[in-house]
Write a protein that binds this DNA or RNA. Structure first.
Length: 264
DNA sequence: ACCTATGTTATCGC
DNA sequence: GGCGATAACATAGG
């Protein structure tokens, strides 16, 4: 479920076990995930290098690579991507699209079932964010700047939350969760949100994302009173017992409790 | 066969 | 130029 919390968990996994190990070989079983770099260039760029540190920007994971020139490995997970670190024995996991083999025998596998994610190289994170038109990371966004972003935006609140060029990190599922917990309808027009609504929205957003990270982005560990486990037409709202409804907003499935979120 | 699915992008219309 | 809608990308599962 690669939204911000999921990517943060992947980042921590890599930071805990994938740094400072010299890379022996890079394999690219399916180069359709590569973005702006050939399999050969990726392999040459990484050979003998080590991953030094990680950074997350929205749903992107950026990994600094050692060497004379600044170089970052960039990973995006699409809807079905993940990282697997293993001992390198046996066949790589299914859907492994890029594999870094370390000299010590272990390996890092980038998996993507639907090939919707991308792997690439960048000179630095700021240039990468600019090139991909990413807004500020949503957890690195102060209240004043958040209010400013919303003040300059019109339209539906859910579309704004999910617009990665406005703020980076919130996806379809967590947008619904945040709006549910904030008591705001996804189709609400931003013009109809007052200052208290906007401040509450940011506060809830941070709480939801941080809680999800604390729970390892594991749906089983998320609070039972969240909407997330009830993403189904007709399910019981954990707060009021009313019916959860399915809508479409911005072409995406959207779940809402009309009673708790104002009917729209 | 049909529908659904956590993401992004290009394109069209207003 | 911004925003909403739509299709496309590719694959699996119900």
């Amino acid at each position: 479920m690669p939204e911000l919390p999921d990517v943060e968990i992947q980042r921590r996994r890599l930071a805990a076990g994938g740094l400072k190990r010299p890379i022996a070989h890079t394999h690219v079983p399916d180069d359709r995930v590569l973005d702006g770099v050939s399999a050969r260039k990726l392999a040459v760029s990484l050979k003998g290098r080590r991953l030094l540190r990680t950074r997350r920007h929205g749903k992107h994971l950026l990994v600094a690579v050692d060497g004379d020139d600044p170089l970052w490995l960039t990973l995006h997970f699409g809807m079905t991507g993940e990282l697997v670190l293993d001992d390198g024995r046996g066949e790589p996991p299914r859907y492994a699209r890029v594999i870094l083999e370390w000299r010590d025998g272990g390996r890092l596998c980038y998996l993507s079932r639907r090939l919707l994610g991308h792997v690439g190289l960048a000179g630095d994170p700021e240039a990468f964010a600019r090139a991909h038109d990413l807004g500020p990371d949503v957890l690195d966004l102060g209240r004043r700047r958040f209010l400013k972003l919303l003040a300059d935006r019109r339209g539906m609140v859910k579309s704004a939350l999910m617009d990665q060029s406005l703020l980076a990190g919130v996806g379809n599922v967590y947008a619904d969760e945040i709006l549910y917990q904030a008591g705001i309808h996804p189709r609400a027009d931003l013009d109809d949100l007052d200052d208290d609504d906007r401040k509450r929205l940011r506060r809830v957003m941070r709480r939801v994302l941080r809680t999800a990270i604390d729970r390892k982005a594991d749906p089983e560990r998320l609070p039972r009173r969240w909407l997330l486990p009830r993403r189904e037409e007709g399910a019981a709202c954990p707060r009021c017992g009313g019916r959860v409804r399915r809508l479409e907003v911005g072409g995406r499935a959207t779940y809402v409790c009309p009673a708790c979120q104002g009917g729209g």
